[in-house]
């Protein structure tokens, strides 16, 4: 069962497709919500906060959106993976499917959403007259590292949440905290410099700042930040894989 790559690839494709169709099944606009959701949130934040921070941030909508897209992907990806085992419990008890496939597919699904929302960023940058930079190519690096990080965190949470459902509730609060600690909608300069160090320890903020540097400011991302993000992401990824491997076989008995 699931010995060949073609079989796994096809299963993954089907699972992502299932997620995409089931999410928007009763909505008129369907997948267009993947566009509208970040756009509307951006409009709300711009309306409220550009008055406060508009002077210190040049082109507030782009500043906010560039951070929000990264944070949204992290938030939705890790939560999707966290709940993937519980959500598919009825299936796992009845047929054999490699359990990591559910975590992988929900992250892939969020990645598709993430890519779609780039169109919004592109549109907003065009409308607001922001300049496009060749350094945007470097954005691939923090995005790749972010994906690795999401896989690691997602696998760890998937195991923990299956054993203790409180992990899910705690994590919801944690991601809220994480949002405020990622300088999404305010400039990092307003934070006292002693606390700014904490921000640099936040890997999601690292990804956001590298992404902004390459796409919004047109500079090569800071090497040490990238290095920190890479070290963090791969460590978590390693822990996630090991933990999942150990508990994978016992998960069915816990759901």
């Amino acid at each position: 069962m699931f010995d060949t790559f073609a079989e796994k690839k096809f299963l993954l494709k089907q699972l992502v497709k299932r997620d995409l169709t089931s999410k928007y099944k009763d909505s008129v606009l369907g997948i267009l919500w993947s566009f509208f959701n970040p756009l509307l949130i951006m409009l709300v934040f711009t309306a409220i906060f550009s008055m406060l921070f508009g002077r210190s941030i040049e082109n507030y909508p782009v500043y906010f959106l560039s951070g929000r897209l990264i944070y949204d992907f992290y938030n939705a990806g890790t939560k999707g993976a966290m709940n993937s085992i519980k959500r598919n419990a009825y299936l796992l008890k009845k047929i054999y499917v490699p359990k990591y496939m559910f975590a992988v597919s929900s992250i892939c699904y969020e990645f598709v959403n993430f890519l779609i929302s780039f169109i919004i960023l592109f549109g907003v940058m065009t409308i607001t007259g922001a300049s496009f930079h060749l350094t945007s190519i470097y954005a691939v690096i923090p995005i790749f590292l972010l994906v690795i990080l999401i896989f690691g965190i997602g696998l760890i949470l998937a195991v923990c949440n299956t054993y203790f459902s409180d992990v899910g509730y705690l994590y919801n609060v944690f991601t809220l905290l994480l949002m405020y600690a990622s300088a999404l909608f305010y400039p990092i300069e307003i934070v006292p410099s002693s606390i700014q160090i904490l921000f640099t320890l936040n890997p999601v903020y690292s990804a956001i700042s590298c992404f902004r540097e390459s796409v919004v400011y047109g500079v090569v991302p800071d090497f040490s930040t990238l290095l920190y993000l890479a070290a963090f992401a791969f460590t978590v990824f390693g822990i996630g894989i090991i933990l999942f491997k150990i508990y994978e076989k016992k998960l069915v008995l816990e759901i």
Binding site: F2, L15, R18, K94
Partner: peptide, 28 residues
Amino acid sequence: LEISAGFDKNYTGKNNIYLNGAFLSMDE
């Protein structure tokens, strides 16, 4: 064992053939 466990009720029969086939480790 459970022949219709993998069905998605909102899918058409056609899509369900592919989805279920994938669950039973058939490739495209």
